[in-house]
Design a protein around this nucleic acid. Structure first.
Lengths: 138, 138
DNA sequence: ACTTAAATAGGAATTATTCCTATTTAAAAA
DNA sequence: TTTTTAAATAGGAATAATTCCTATTTAAGT
């Protein structure tokens, strides 16, 4: 369990207030896009520059501290990189949930059949979450 | 096997030269982003407007004629919607390949464990294609 | 051919992202 | 603790991406 400060320093990045605030805000939100993030941070950090946001989101993604979550027709969202997981996205309420799903067998299958070395995977299932299933029944 | 004209008309879209050219170009390229598509089409279609491109890519995606392929750190790419498939993306040469992979069991598993109704899936494996594996050995 | 609703071209307006540089700051050294 | 310095930031300009507007054109039904 390492602090944001440690995470940054382990990646040769100075632990600036701005970076720590960005990581805190992303961790708190779960998945968040540039605009929402910027508006949230500005409240407590009025001088934060948009360029600083873009630069840091990009740097921290390059260093695998953050992960970009891309969904068709939506702005890129950022999340803290933790254990590998898939995303469940509700078409109705838009909520994004993280779930663990073991897909080692599928990766093996894919590698053997295609002469392809899989290094990473990105899986999104879209559909209806519990709450929205229930509401649509009513 | 239906023509572009039929596909468009079945979706209540007029079969304009522009739309047919866009579909042809995407089909030919496999996966292509707005800029490359526009530059290609302009060669044979000098009056094509960028707004027309954006409008049509968006409309045809809404109608599920096209599919947006989103990969972190890259521009959105478009492909013709055909049978469901996953994407293999080579980290080294960037090539995107389509592959069939049966994941019904994983979807079932995910639905049962999470009270989530899966309607669609989007799977990307990134790694090294055959050609690039070989080249890195040398 | 005629009609008409839909689509386009072209460009303006808006939004998103990157770039530039003087100033500030984190953190290592003294 | 102060000093030093390379790295990072703020602020704004520049560029790129996308959407919007409207007069004109066109697909396709009559």
């Amino acid at each position: 369990m390492s602090s944001y400060q440690e995470i940054l320093q382990n990646n040769n990045l100075k632990a600036t207030h701005q970076r720590i605030a960005i990581l805190e805000a992303i961790d708190h939100a779960g998945h968040i896009d540039v605009d929402k993030l910027f508006k949230n941070l500005r409240k407590h950090f009025p001088t934060l520059a948009l360029g600083t946001m873009y630069r840091n989101l990009s740097e921290m993604s390059d260093k695998h501290i953050l992960l970009e979550v891309t969904l068709p027709g939506q702005k890129v969202k950022y999340e803290l990189k933790k254990e590998p997981h898939i995303h469940l996205v509700c078409n109705w309420c838009g909520k994004i949930e993280d779930r663990i799903l073991d897909i080692e067998d599928k990766i093996k299958e894919c590698e053997e059949e295609n002469d392809f070395t899989v290094l990473d995977s990105n899986i999104v299932f879209t559909g209806l979450c519990k709450k929205c299933q229930d509401q649509k029944k009513v």
